[in-house]
Design a protein around this nucleic acid. Structure first.
Lengths: 110, 110
DNA sequence: TTTCTATATATAGCATTCCTATGTATAGGA
DNA sequence: TCCTATACATAGGAATGCTATATATAGAAA
């Protein structure tokens, strides 16, 4: 697990990225982020829900209430066109950070 | 310039890294971080001074007051042996973050 | 000589992001 | 019936970096 101080700011990118492959609800997002990073990146639901509300307020994601066949109520989020457009510049900024830290601090990427 | 939300947590690594090449005072650290990242990473002195106090309290750096020939007083910081030992694991954690975001969010490192 | 810029450190107060702790509620298996 | 997994929600706090402000000296320009 990566320490909280270091992973700060990654949650937004992580959420937008997992939503790129299709709509998801919060609980499942957390599961996929952990799975796809082999446990390196892990977020509590208490972090993700407020983040999703912020992203929805900005118009980058949209959530709709769903009632599954079993009767369980959950909120399904999907990327909006505006959110899709934001992903490229956000990735570019992270790339720039990686390059900067490679030069400055000799952090390897391998 | 990388947005504040994304660069969070990088200041500690940046400071320890520039100090690896020799003792420096705060003002000069800020200048070198900006220079060596070609302006991608830039910190205000109001961020760096409290960070240096924290690092000193942890025993990772040690600062001594200097009075230059011209009479200017400034605090010169150097890495302690403990600080030197911390650099490798911190770099490893950043590397792990890079790998995780490459897999999860397709952030390139080139 | 005065004024402006660069150098240099310090702190108050704030925003953002993520945390732990807690609460609610349903589904399914032991 | 109880435990675990699923699913959402919020209160309260820690950490990090920001703007704004304050102090003070050196050197160049006017």
């Amino acid at each position: 697990m990566i320490a909280p101080g270091i992973k700060r700011g990654t949650a937004e990118l992580a959420v937008l990225s997992v939503l790129e492959d299709g709509p998801l609800h919060g609980y499942e997002m957390a599961r996929r982020i952990e799975e796809q990073t082999h446990g390196s990146l892990r977020f509590t639901l208490a972090s993700l829900y407020p983040l999703l509300y912020r992203l929805e307020k900005r118009g980058w994601v949209r959530g709709v209430w769903e009632t599954s066949g079993t009767g369980r109520r959950r909120r399904c989020y999907r990327l909006t066109p505006a959110g899709k457009k934001k992903l490229a510049p956000i990735r570019a900024e992270w790339s720039e950070l990686f390059r900067a830290l490679k030069r400055l601090a000799k952090v390897s990427h391998a």
